[in-house]
Each structure stands twice: as C-alpha cells, then as structure tokens.
Write a protein that binds this DNA or RNA. Structure first.
Lengths: 227, 227
DNA sequence: CGCTTAATTGATCAGGGTCAATCGTGGTGG
DNA sequence: CCACCACGATTGACCCTGATCAATTAAGCG
C-alpha cells in the first residue's frame, strides 16, 4: 500500500495539506502537531550546509533556493522551491545543502523527529515524504542533463519555460530571483544570462518590461531552442 | 518508525539483502518471492526511456549506467551503479531514463507491482526504497554541482577519487567503462577526458597501465584538484 | 537627490569543443 | 601464426562559446 498510494497521490494530500497551503492549521491535518508556521524575509538563511538537520519545510508562499557552495565561493543552486513543495528533508544528521529565501516567504516547519514518530502511525505521512523524494530525484536528474549537455541559449530557454509554468497567467513571467540566482542555477555567469536574454528580446522571443518581468512573445521559438 | 528506521539503516538491510548481494535467494529474505535473477551482457539494454515501468533492479555484480538522451543524440549518464545499489525505480508509469550494462552484469529484478503489495505487509521494504531514493537524490545533487561549476581537471579528478572507493585495493582503479562513458557522465568530450588523463600522468598524479587500469600515484594532488 | 547594488553592454581571453590524423589493441580469418 | 581489420584511445591544430575584465546604465532607497 505504501507504494500504491505514493504512485496514485497527487501533490496535494496528506502532509502537503491544502490547509497548510492556505496558512492555516486544521485539526484534521495529520501533521497539525508537528508543523508550525515560519516567516523569513528575502535573503534570509533558512538553514546552512553542515548544520544538524532538525526540521524540514513546506513552502506556503514565496520562493526558496537550495544550494551548495564550493571552497572558492562558487555556488550551485540545486533547485528553486515554490508553494506546495517540500524541501530540507535529509536522511543524514548533517545538512548537505543550505537554503535561503529568494523572496519573503511563509513556510511550515516540521520537526524531523516529530514527524518520524508521526509516520509510525500515519503512513500517508511517509508516503508523502517518499513521493517528495522521488519527485525531487527526477527533478535533480533533469537538472543534471541541463547542466551537463546544453548551451547557454538552451539553458535559459528551458529555464524560462519551466518558470512560466509556475507563473500566474498567459505568457507573463514574474522572476522572483536575481540574474545571479539564475546564473548559479544554470551553471552560467550573470553576464551570459543577461546577454542571452537580450538576444532573445532582439529575436522577438520575449519582451523585458522590468528586470523581473518577462513576456513570452514566441513560445514555440523558445521551445525549439530548449529542444 | 518508517523514518527512524530509514535514518538508522545502512545500505545492507531489508530489501538490499546480503543474500541477494551474494547471488542467493533465501527464505528469510522479505523479497524472495518478488525478485528473480537476471544476467545481461556488456552493452545490452536493461530498459529504455519511455517504456512502461514494470520492474526495478538491484545490482549483484557488474556495473550499470543510467542515462538520458537529447534529440540530437547527446547523452548524459546520470549515474553508474555497482553491486548493492538499486536502480530503475520510478513513481510514474513511463520511464524517464534508460539503463544499460557497462560490463556483464548479474541483477535481481523486482516486479514493481509485486513489491508494492509486499510493502503493505513489510515496512522494511518501503523503508529500503525510501532510503534508496534519498541516497540517489543526494548523489544526483552532488553530480549537478560537479557538472555545473567545475572545470575538466576538477571533474576528472573527482571521478577518479569517487571510483577509487569502489575499487578493490590501494590505489589501483579498474575502470569498467569507456572514455565515452566517462565523458558523458562528466559532461565533457572523449578528447578532453583523454587529454586530462594524459596530463595527470605527465604531472605524476596517476599512471595508466591499460586504458582501463589507473594507478593512483599522488592521491593528495588529485584531492587538491578535486577541491 | 546622491548612494548603493543589480543589470546591461563591450572587448578580450581561454577552456574545452570540433575536426582530423595516428596509434594501439584485440579479434578474426586466411 | 600472423596479417588485417575495426574500434577505442590518444594527440594535434584550430575554432567557438562562454568566462573574465571593465565600463556604463538602470533602479531602489535612505
């Protein structure tokens, strides 16, 4: 059953909680006892590499980046997390990654130990965590493909199309993150990201209102680039 | 309990099976009914992207590569799997990756549906799968860091050190895979891999007996490069 | 209204890709 | 048994993408 349920579940059950999503805690929510709401401001650290893993989180609103650093300061952003997603769950005691708020965020924090105990009684909790792990695994694998084998234009086009899915409406993307964040996510420099976006604009693929607002003018063209 | 066990487990419990490792199936093994031994020869396909996910596998002996292809034929190897590791488990119905035998392999194949049912009764099975997912997630994230932010020398040095851990003895690495495999794993070309290895040899970091046999001459030096 | 930080743009450089030739090795068949 | 062949690996010459260095512009914010 564990796996059956996991296969069948969409992303809005059990631990996920439509309720947590809305920022409330309800008595019928299996994790009501374990979760507490936290607010973090833009740029604030949520946890850091090397710390002890005491909690994990679910995004209620805002965007979170999870990343690793190299000794020389280079940074790789592993993923951006948006409303409804779980991040920061690790098996080991020590964190392998750090997390920061890209924008002001509301999170639900779950004490890892508490949830471990809860999971004994409610398998839906374990299932949700399993589902989360498999989902993030698939995402990390796709990300690796992007990083390893694609050129700058392909990377940026893919990023825009991915992010468009998270955005509210028809062809207007609100980027929560800076160019530096995008660069560190795509394994590029800030200059290359900027140049590529400018080129896309010249080519009529997109229009840049603000730095943070991208209008899709030719989605097909982008999809061709993203290949 | 689900999570507690998962945290505490090492990689040689439950579904893993010291027994399966040794190529036998024992009556006390929870998965004895679900698993069957398969042999695949070097270069043979185990499953392909797009197929229906009916089984997953555990490596008994040999090396397996799991990879994705781009439309133009470029390939990204997501991971090499060695004895004791599980691969090919996916939530969705359709496979996102393909798998091939790098060398002659013995595998244990588990019917996905069978294990799903078994997992209802034996939580150790679900725990092991969960552990596997989290382990592979951490690995994929490390891999993404390698691909996104490191130069050729750093990549190759990291690869050699990683692979040295899988190798039997003190400083002699047997590479199961071709240069092309290494290149596709590291997001490089075959030529760059070759040049980098030659350079390492000139620098006294390694010695290349065969194409497939690498002697570590200066592990510290490599570790410095891998940074 | 300056001050600070992010983004864009330009000029140059280098790491790694591409194309091409050669070498080495193992397998096959005469 | 050895010559030949096929394929992988190595090496070289050159090129191109994206990094680096540097200057300018734009945008928040006190």
């Amino acid at each position: 059953m564990a796996l059956q349920q996991a296969s069948a579940m969409n992303s809005d059950t059990a631990l996920s909680g439509r309720l947590a999503w809305m920022g409330r805690i309800d008595a019928s929510e299996p994790l009501r006892a374990a979760g507490s709401v936290v607010h973090v401001r833009e740029g604030e650290e949520i946890f850091a590499e090397g710390e002890t893993t005491e909690a994990f989180y679910k995004v209620v609103s805002g965007v979170v980046r999870v990343c690793k650093f190299l000794s020389d300061g280079r940074r790789q952003i592993e993923a951006f997390h948006v409303a409804g997603e779980i991040f920061g769950f690790e098996l080991g005691n020590d964190r392998l990654m750090s997390a920061e708020a890209v924008s002001d965020c509301s999170l639900v924090s779950y004490r890892k130990r508490g949830v471990e105990m809860l999971a004994q009684k409610d398998h839906a909790v374990g299932n949700q965590l399993f589902h989360h792990a498999m989902w993030n695994l698939a995402r990390a694998q796709t990300h690796a493909l992007l990083l390893g084998r694609r050129g700058a234009a392909e990377k940026v086009a893919t990023f825009l199309l991915d992010w468009a899915r998270h955005s509210t409406g028809k062809g207007v993307i609100h980027l929560a993150m800076t160019r530096q964040d995008i660069a560190d996510y795509l394994g590029l420099t800030i200059e290359t990201v900027s140049r590529t976006l400018s080129q896309f604009e010249r080519d009529g693929l997109i229009a840049l209102a603000n730095t943070r607002e991208v209008r899709l003018r030719n989605m097909e063209g982008l999809e061709t680039l993203a290949a």
